[in-house]
Design a binder for these strands. Structure first.
Lengths: 216, 216
DNA sequence: GACCTTCTCACCTACGTGTTAAGC
DNA sequence: TCGCTTAACACGTAGGTGAGAAGG
């Protein structure tokens, strides 16, 4: 802690966990277009991947790190004439979707020593009994990170852990907001996904090679 | 606990963690031939995979689960005329190799709710700075499982954790003993590896299809 | 030469992409 | 019809096999 240091020129002015989003430039590219994330029955990974740098934890204390998906509003959205517009009232109640980082629980020193990546989280539109995140297609979401202190005698469901708010901090990631879709609507978003996601390289080749590739 | 129950017909007669090896039939096939495990510079997975079922943990307590590779004797071994025979004295001091299960640390309830698999452990003969297990080729090893109780204020190196033996239990897995090799010596071992490891299916096809495959 | 190690290779497993056509 | 969802598909990434040739 450092809040009672008398303010002697310290950079850290606040106590408690701090979270910084990685790949900000990439996220901003998508956010500027209104980002979309595919949801499928079997679950789809996110791209870009939510990756964060954490600091301000007690090294020897134990924490869970949780990614939450908050439904931003109660509207259903439509993509018409190149822009997203709100439709009627939402037909479904906003649900809380929680993804516990698979390295949880772990020591503060573990979470802060390296970038924490949520590349394994999968988004779905079906209520699988799995560990996947169920979202409503054509609704908007904002990912948030929760850092929850746990002890060797603290157990219970993820929800119970989050409600124990005295030992929990919340870190919104507004740059990672997105609309859940079953198929991409904005072709500029599709182009960005293909350009930067290595798993979509097959489609990048088809579009970029003619004219740019000096081979042959 | 159950050691002071007066022996009223209970199955569990002892306190503390219990470990049972999975895939016993498969392991016994290899053990009967004297099992071999490949070591490479970049690290090689084990096959069969060490998979265990754990019980007898305190659900809300925190544990590390560790796989240790104990050099059985100080001899160097040779494969001559179809059998393994001890050579001269060992030229290298027996080392202790520890692999902390990647889900560590975790609650007792986590470790006991499902099979714990060590499929990601990699064996090497080079001192990489990595998390890989360094073994001496042509020496014999016995894998052992350590279950180490840890608290939110317990930190330190893996070795330090193991030496804190008051909160640690050791579970030898004699059926998983093997000779570390850079190339298989016993062709019967090779045949078993090909037969049961899905990643070696290419070689299974080449050997089993002619005469057995009704296609064509 | 005999023995052991290293490297490259074809051939797998496993699964992450957007596309496309069909379904509703 | 139109809008949205689903499933099959081709084509990638990523990496686990023993074989076999080459090296020491």
């Amino acid at each position: 802690g450092g809040s009672n240091n008398g303010g002697a020129g310290l950079v850290e002015l606040e106590d408690g966990p701090r979270v910084v989003l990685e790949d900000r430039e990439l996220w901003d590219k998508f956010h500027g277009l209104t980002n979309e994330m595919i949801v499928t029955k079997s679950g789809r990974r996110m791209f870009p991947v939510v990756r964060i740098r954490i600091s301000g934890l007690v090294p020897n204390a134990m924490y869970n790190v949780v990614l939450e998906f908050v439904q931003i509003d109660s509207h259903r959205w439509k993509y018409v004439n190149g822009e997203w517009v709100p439709g009627g009232k939402a037909e479904c109640a906003p649900t809380t979707a929680l993804y516990i980082h698979p390295e949880s629980p772990n020591f503060g020193s573990h979470w802060t020593k390296d970038i924490v990546s949520f590349h394994k989280v999968k988004l779905t539109n079906k209520t699988n009994g799995n560990v996947q995140i169920m979202l409503h297609s054509l609704h908007r979401y904002e990912p948030r990170v929760h850092i929850v202190r746990v002890g060797a005698d603290t157990a219970g469901s993820p929800d119970a852990l989050l409600r124990n708010s005295r030992a929990s901090s919340i870190h919104p990631l507004p740059e990672t907001q997105f609309v859940a879709v079953t198929a991409y609507q904005n072709e500029e978003v599709t182009a960005l996904k293909i350009r930067y996601n290595p798993f979509a390289k097959a489609f990048l080749d088809a579009k970029e090679r003619p004219g740019l590739d000096p081979r042959r």
